[in-house]
Design a protein around this nucleic acid. Structure first.
Length: 585
DNA sequence: GCCGTTTTCGGCCCGACTGTTTTCAGTCG
């Protein structure tokens, strides 16, 4: 049993206990689930090496939960969980996806109406049964229906950050096989979309059968959907489909291009080919028409295909038909407004949003610093929450001053150890209802980096919400607007905010807009592109709450690349002094 | 159920909003 599966069950145990109004235990289970979810080492390994004792060493795990984990690892089941589930046999993970619906509501709906899953819920809501229930009303019913629509519209897609490690594992194992020359992942994974539907593996090999047999027998495979000579398709245990195609070397580039998409991008390329009297397919670029196919002109690499079409190579992240075809043609013809030189993976030097155990993070400042060094970062800003966010134990004036002193001491310590990392003093300061800040300017002005965040009142009308944020941006101590639209992928829609106005004010005030690399993925690509065009600078932050979250910066870079951003647009791709001198004074 | 340079027992889970009520339960960050 893997970490995610263990975490899922522990989350559900917490929710079931919440239903029964058991005090404190739900938090305990939830905390452990969070820790296990972000653990790098499989719990199974920890248990194998050190037994129950080692499992108890995991943050937040005591004897009772350790024994439950042991039971899960040994039997794949948990009696305690099964008992809880028997009392309220509902599809928790499905129902709790619906925003505004929590354990108590789920319990009531089950007891009064026998609702077990989303289908039951939708039926009851549409029949007007929920609005008549005590404690619910017409508004709740409407919200539930909206929530169902929201959950459905993302059905079957997976957050790239959550499935990428597994995809890479498969890719690496395929690469290690005999008779395999190359393995790439195409599709939306290669375009680095925020969410991906399935994984398309492309393999060059002379011995396709061996590869196919291996692929369908992998431990991740739940069900084999197809098992052929050059194409196989499986459903993985995480619910995602994966395809594998084996290709001949000479058409590899064409196939990679074809299977990478996007579809509309491919159609545009084929139209350009036709105008030149050529035909483009997954097998290559040929002379003549599809019916009367002539000689193969290009196909081995993507580069030679674009070149033969009179274009410059277009990075996969840009292949969304948002002007990349025209830009590529202009570039190849030596005209202005060509393709951007996208920021590269690995070019981020610092991370400007990090939470620690001073608030809702799991690790100390020092542990975060050590992890940052390991990840090759040159600087990090500690940006814990502020007091309004009481649930996170947000910092007040007194505690943040104390934290600043600790950071000074830590920087000194790093220096004496000859370590290159610089820790910056920062804050993720709440924006209050009227747009004022949760900490006084006398404190904010002492910090190196001040991020401002909306964490409340998501439902303000657009005009009011925009004015509130704009006021915060006009504060001379506010450097960065964190997660500017408030959305969380597959969980929460952005609040109503006029982004054109925000970008305009960002330009005017020199406020940086954040590209949050966590599951928020906020800004989204279209706003990044607008920022680039407007000359508004951005920062790619991991929003790390644990020491192993820095790796998510990669997804922030992917997001930036999809928004056509270059190194010059991203301030934390710059050295620390240059970055700091760009912030508001 | 976990945790401890305040405690091995007694804290932890705060504050505001929403939608439902007519004083408050449920949800969220």
């Amino acid at each position: 049993m893997d970490n995610n599966s263990i975490a899922k069950i522990l989350y559900e145990v917490g929710e079931y206990l919440e239903m029964q109004e058991v005090p404190f235990k739900p938090r305990a289970y939830e905390k452990v689930a969070q820790v296990i979810e972000s653990l790098e080492e499989p719990v199974l390994e920890i248990y194998k090496k050190g037994g129950l004792k080692a499992v108890e060493e995991i943050q937040g795990v005591g004897l009772s939960i350790a024994e439950k984990i042991e039971e899960l690892l040994k039997t794949g089941k948990l009696k305690y969980y099964d008992q809880l589930k028997k009392k309220t046999p509902v599809n928790l993970s499905e129902l709790s996806k619906i925003e505004g619906l929590g354990p108590k509501g789920i319990k009531k709906l089950y007891q009064k109406l026998g609702i077990k899953d989303m289908a039951d819920l939708e039926k009851a809501a549409k029949a007007g049964k929920i609005g008549k229930l005590a404690g619910f009303g017409p508004k709740s019913e409407e919200n539930i229906l909206k929530g169902i629509g929201f959950a459905k519209s993302f059905g079957g897609r997976f957050l790239i950050g959550s499935v990428m490690p597994g995809i890479r594992q498969i890719q690496n194992r395929l690469r290690g096989l005999n008779n395999v020359k190359r393995v790439e992942v195409a599709g939306s994974t290669r375009r680095r979309k925020e969410t991906i539907g399935d994984a398309d593996f492309l393999v060059i090999s002379d011995k396709p059968k061996e590869i196919m047999d291996y692929f369908v027998a992998m431990p991740e495979v739940l069900k084999v959907l197809a098992h052929g000579d050059t194409k196989s398709s499986v459903k993985l245990r995480n619910g995602m489909n994966a395809d594998l195609r084996v290709l001949p070397e000479e058409s590899y580039g064409a196939a990679l291009n074809y299977f990478t998409g996007s579809k509309t991008h491919n159609v545009a390329l084929r139209q350009i080919a036709i105008k030149k009297g050529l035909t483009l397919s997954e097998y290559g670029l040929f002379k003549g028409t599809a019916e009367k196919r002539g000689k193969l002109i290009a196909g081995k690499t993507e580069e030679e295909i674009y070149e033969a079409l009179g274009m410059d190579y277009i990075e996969p992240e840009m292949r969304e038909m948002t002007g990349e075809i025209e830009a590529s043609l202009r570039q190849a013809q030596g005209k202005p407004n060509g393709l951007p030189k996208l920021i590269k993976y690995g070019e981020i030097k610092g991370d400007l949003q990090i939470q620690t155990n001073w608030t809702d993070g799991e690790n100390s400042i020092e542990e975060m610093a050590e992890a940052a060094i390991k990840d090759g970062l040159e600087y990090i800003a500690i940006t814990d929450h502020t007091k309004r966010l009481a649930m996170t134990n947000g910092l007040d004036e007194k505690r943040i001053l104390k934290q600043m002193a600790e950071i000074d001491a830590l920087n000194l310590k790093l220096k004496t150890k000859n370590l290159k990392l610089r820790i910056l003093k920062g804050s993720e300061c709440d924006i209050l209802k009227d747009g004022s800040m949760d900490l006084p300017d006398s404190i904010l002005s002492k910090l190196d980096v001040v991020g401002a965040s909306v964490h409340s009142l998501f439902n303000l009308p657009q005009k009011e919400q925009t004015a509130r944020i704009v006021r915060a941006m006009r504060n001379p101590n506010v450097d960065i607007l964190f997660h500017p639209t408030g959305r969380i992928l597959q969980r929460r829609e952005p609040y109503a905010v006029d982004m054109d106005e925000i970008i305009k004010v960002a330009k005017e005030t020199g406020t940086i807009l954040e590209i949050n690399a966590s599951e928020r993925a906020d800004l989204k690509d279209e706003y990044i592109k607008k920022c680039v065009e407007a000359g508004v600078k951005m920062a790619i932050d991991s929003d790390s709450h644990t020491a192993n979250h820095f790796s998510s910066i990669e997804y922030g870079i992917a997001q930036a690349r999809r928004g056509w951003a270059e190194k010059k647009d991203i301030i934390n791709a710059w050295p620390v002094e240059k970055m700091l001198s760009f912030l508001k004074k």
